[in-house]
C-alpha cells in the first residue's frame, strides 16, 4: 500500500476542556489506505501527533463495529460522515479522495456540551432514559416469561425497529433545531408498542418529554434530516407515535 494512499487535509475542532474556547486546526495526514475506517485514520493522525510531542485529538469510540453508539463526529457537514446507515467507525476512507479537505467537528447542541476536542457530554440522553425509558418489573424470582404474552408480529417488528436506536445522538447533531425527538420517539415507541409498556405508558411519555425539554433540546420542525442521518434507520413514524402518545396521555 505504501506510497499509493491518500493525502488529506484535516480541519479539526480542538478545545482543551469544557471551559476553554475552541477553534478549528489544520492537520495533514499522508498515505491513508482506502480500506481504513475513519477512526483508524484518526488513530494515524494521533500517532503522528504523539510522535511529535503534541496533544492527540480526543474522540469517542468503543466497539468499532457500529453498535455501541459511542463514536460520533460531524464529518464534512454530516453526522457520521457522507455514507448512510452507518456510524463513524464503519465509515471507510474510500468514501473520500486523495487531496480532499475534511472538516471534523463535535456534535453541536446546547444539550451536548463539548468536554474536550471532539468529545461531547451526552448524559442528557441518559437522564431522559432515567425519566421513563424502562418498565418496572418485579424480579422476585417468579418473573413471568416475556414470551408468554402474545404479541403480533407487526408490533414486535416495529418495537424492535425502535429499540435498535443506539443513542449516538446523530439525530440531535443533524437537526437544525438540535431536537432530540427521534431519540425520545424511539425510546417511547419501543415500549408503547408492547403490552409490557402499557402500564406506565402515560407517565413514561410525559416524564420523558418533560426531561427532554428541561435538557434544552429544540423543537422538531419535521425536516426529516434525523431519519436520513440515523445510523440505525429509525423512522420519523416514531416521532408521530410519541406525539400521539403524549396527546393521549394529556387528555386522560
Amino acid at each position: 500500500m505504501s506510497g499509493k494512499g491518500m493525502n488529506l487535509t484535516l480541519k479539526i475542532w480542538r478545545q482543551k476542556d469544557a471551559q476553554s474556547k475552541g477553534k478549528m486546526e489544520t492537520y495533514n495526514v499522508t498515505d491513508i489506505s482506502e480500506h481504513m475506517s475513519f477512526l483508524e485514520m484518526m488513530d494515524v493522525l494521533n500517532e503522528q501527533l504523539i510522535a511529535s510531542g503534541d496533544e492527540p485529538v480526543a474522540f469517542d469510540h468503543d466497539c468499532r463495529e457500529g453498535i455501541c453508539g459511542m463514536c460520533s463526529l460531524y464529518i464534512n457537514g454530516e453526522a457520521h460522515g457522507p455514507d448512510r446507515g452507518i456510524t463513524t467507525c464503519q465509515l471507510h476512507m474510500r468514501m473520500f479522495n486523495d487531496g480532499d479537505t475534511i472538516y471534523i467537528e463535535p456534535w453541536r447542541a446546547a444539550a451536548f456540551p463539548v468536554i474536550k476536542d471532539l468529545v461531547v457530554d451526552r448524559t442528557s440522553f441518559e437522564r431522559i432514559q432515567q425519566a421513563g425509558g424502562y418498565i418496572s418489573v418485579n424480579t422476585s424470582g417468579n418473573t413471568q416469561d416475556a414470551n408468554a404474552l402474545p404479541i403480533s408480529k407487526h408490533a414486535a417488528d416495529e418495537a424492535m425497529d425502535a429499540a435498535t436506536c443506539i443513542g449516538c445522538g446523530a439525530c440531535v447533531a443533524t437537526c437544525k433545531n438540535s431536537s432530540a425527538m427521534l431519540f425520545v420517539g424511539a425510546k417511547v415507541s419501543q415500549y408503547a408498542l408492547l403490552p409490557q409498556g402499557q402500564v406506565e405508558a402515560a407517565d413514561r411519555v410525559k416524564n420523558m418529554v418533560a426531561q427532554m425539554d428541561l435538557e434544552g433540546f429544540g423543537n422538531c420542525t419535521n425536516t426529516g434530516a434525523c431519519e436520513i442521518e440515523c445510523p440505525k434507520g429509525i423512522s420519523l413514524e416514531n416521532i408521530a407515535r410519541m406525539n400521539r402518545e403524549l396527546m393521549k396521555a394529556s387528555i386522560k
Binding site: K11, W13, M24, Y74, N76, G77, E78, P82, Y103, E105, R108, A109, A110, A111, P113, T174, K176, N177, S178, S179, G216, F217, G218, N219, T221, T223, G224, A225, I228, E229
Partner: peptide
C-alpha cells in the same frame, strides 16, 4: 431552537438530508 443549537458548525451540509 436557536438557543438549543448553541455553537454553529464550521461546515454543515443541510441539503444532504433535508
Amino acid at each position: 431552537n436557536r438557543k438549543a443549537i448553541g455553537v454553529s458548525y464550521a461546515k454543515n451540509n443541510g441539503a444532504a438530508n433535508s
